[in-house]
Design a protein around this nucleic acid. Structure first.
Lengths: 204, 204
DNA sequence: AATTGATGTAAGTAAGTGCTTACATCCTTA
DNA sequence: TAAGGATGTAAGCACTTACTTACATCAATT
């Protein structure tokens, strides 16, 4: 009877989809059940109430920012490259979890703590990992004495807002090339901003 | 009979307040009218339907980013100071329009075009003004040859996301001192990132 | 063959929603 | 003082919502 799990997951997927499109209040349990291809009663048998369904969906579609491992593997590469890789990975994860990101941004009113938790789990964790990487280089004198909490978050804030504006607000699909270009330009400015020495590759 | 206008404005204010708290669907016309201290019927007599009320509210609470004038008046000051002033002004405006900002971010699903318009009107205009300022200095060789559209927006994105995370997501009241400190650190990195010469005020 | 567990259909409930209608009460202006 | 316009109260309508109850189906397990 493998349907048991399957049904649950179909419901969770439909919930993610519909709530990201219409919001928590706009997505009715009838429609969610219908999209999942099950009866509404099944929805209530599995989750009891809509609120629980929403919570379970948030739990199940969590971010897994495996950035620490990634950073270890690219540590030897030049600064610029590492930041570009981190930036791209960050944007790609946002894109992959597009619907969840939209819900996070949109449903702060619905269940503030749960949504906040999901957000922090992803953004703050990524920020910490990035901060750790920068720290190693700061102690070796390659970076200026800026606050690395602020600096790491600054980098992610730019990317997050870029994603939010283009993909969520403007409903525009970002191509990999456009993402890469954009990340490059942000990295250029950001890196120059925290490096001790100018790289000057753009001097005319 | 000055009440005519007063009633309208009380309704618009209540709409802003309630929709920012509970979302468009969560804020009922009954509750809006009650918060405005008028009867629900009055609401419908003035606005016909909820959708119109929402639209009028968006129109009435528009951003007026008088940044161009501000930039003219501080043009002679050092770079760092100008950016700090612009950053603070930007954050202050976001704070002042806190509820509207929240609605903009939250209600993309409700009326995408209207919300987008409100957003663009504010952010893009501020970005343009800032870009103009930077451009004058770039042509005089003080700034590196970075794309100034990207650069100006980068600065605003950091601040917007900072505001969004702290004030909206974490529901934390930012003090002027904290805002000033934060802006300073972002300006420091950003400015170093676009300047031709290092300012080096942080070298140990 | 009997039992069990997951699912379905169908009908319904209580509450809330946006919005309307009918009628009354003011206050201001002519 | 009469008229008009803005507001109010009250009732209600048609609809949707989250959620429930009663009963049936059907596959896999025992």
């Amino acid at each position: 009877m493998a349907e048991k799990i399957d049904t649950r997951e179909k419901l969770l997927a439909a919930t993610l989809e519909l709530i990201s499109e219409k919001g928590y209040l706009g997505a009715s349990t009838r429609e969610i059940a219908s999209k999942a291809g099950v009866s509404e009663l099944t929805l209530f048998r599995k989750f009891g109430k809509k609120e629980t369904l929403f919570e379970e969906m948030l739990k199940s579609h969590t971010f897994l920012p495996r950035l620490k491992e990634l950073l270890d593997s690219v540590e030897a590469l030049p600064f610029e490259t590492v930041l570009e890789i981190v930036g791209m990975k960050f944007l790609e994860t946002l894109k992959e979890r597009r619907k969840l990101v939209k819900i996070m941004v949109t449903e702060i009113n619905t269940y503030p703590e749960k949504v906040r938790k999901t957000y922090v789990q992803f953004i703050a964790n990524t920020g910490d990992a990035l901060k750790g990487y920068l720290q190693r280089h700061q102690t070796e004198g390659r970076l200026r004495q800026v606050d690395l909490d602020i600096a790491a978050m600054m980098f992610l804030r730019v990317l997050f807002n870029f994603f939010q504006t283009e993909e969520i607000l403007k409903k525009r699909e970002l191509s990999p090339e456009e993402m890469k270009d954009t990340v490059r330009q942000y990295v250029d400015i950001f890196l120059n901003g925290i490096l001790v020495e100018k790289s000057n590759q753009y001097s005319e």
